[in-house]
Design a protein around this nucleic acid. Sequence first.
DNA 1: TTGACTTACTTCACATGTAAACGTATGCTA
DNA 2: TAGCATACGTTTACATGTGAAGTAAGTCAA
Lengths: 171, 171
Amino acid sequence: MIQTDWAMPAALKENVVPVPGQIETRLWLQLLSLHGELFASLNSMLNSEFGLSLAKFDVLAQLDRYRDGLALGQLSQNLKVTGGNVSGLVQRLLADDLISREMSSEDRRSFIVRLTPKGEALFRKAAEIHKKHLAKRFENVPARDLDSALSVLKSLSSNDHTESKKQSRKR
Amino acid sequence: MIQTDWAMPAALKENVVPVPGQIETRLWLQLLSLHGELFASLNSMLNSEFGLSLAKFDVLAQLDRYRDGLALGQLSQNLKVTGGNVSGLVQRLLADDLISREMSSEDRRSFIVRLTPKGEALFRKAAEIHKKHLAKRFENVPARDLDSALSVLKSLSSNDHTESKKQSRKR
DNA sequence: TTGACTTACTTCACATGTAAACGTATGCTA
DNA sequence: TAGCATACGTTTACATGTGAAGTAAGTCAA
């Protein structure tokens, strides 16, 4: 097919007639690698500085955003993890005294969790360092590259296909 | 759009004078989200079609690449996971009869693992579907966007700063 | 050769994640 | 109102990951 097939060195053909799935696979491996690196370094930083895992940090971030508290089911949806996982995380955060739990007044099956003052204070500090850590990690990357990385990642995300494409042209 | 720049409340101007770490954090969240989505869908596909987890698939991929076998320590380095983790993975893959293990002839502390014929056959099929799955996931993304996503991810990876920048200009 | 590191792997305790099976509370329908 | 389906959270069993401690084997200096 595709007519470059005759009389072309095999090595050059790869760029012209891409193997289906080749680029996508390389993209996935690159994503995996960057994710792994960042995850490990954020996780270890949070752990040594604040005794927090990234998982716990994510819970605190949700509760910081929803100051009126969240039911465990909502937490589980927002974090995109299973209920059983949230159950355990909440128990450990309760033990750390970073969150509080009370029964919902409307639904006796439901529990509402909130940040404690201690949890809020810890999250504020941790979020600050979290941000700085990422800024430092990428300090050598030009701002333009960061912008285009962000927009290209958005364009790959599943929800992007269903949204109305408001293409704000860069620059 | 954006012509709203005159007489703009400070709160809106944040795009002009970026908060340090803001973009980096958004980038991280976007990366996390895409990673999570792809990981879950690949993992669940491999599991239902082949009884494989992504972790096991990754081990098989390494052993497919190194046909002479790998010591557990090398496996652990290549996969960037701890030795304890590899230990368990190898035990489960042995139980699945997908890999074989023998003592190294040179070093009696060392074990060499290899694909069994069954493991190789399974990996071939799984790698094929893995590739197709990714291709399908991104079928609506223009090839140009995939290329730029790949190159921007590479530019964010830590090893990129130390490499000689051979910028193959696209197009 | 002996003694002291180092290396290779395993094991243990634990955190984080899933899926499935419960128990209990709600809510809807007949 | 009785009964059934659904929703909420917990528990269990398991996979995957870490870090630390333990065992056995290799290495090297004295």
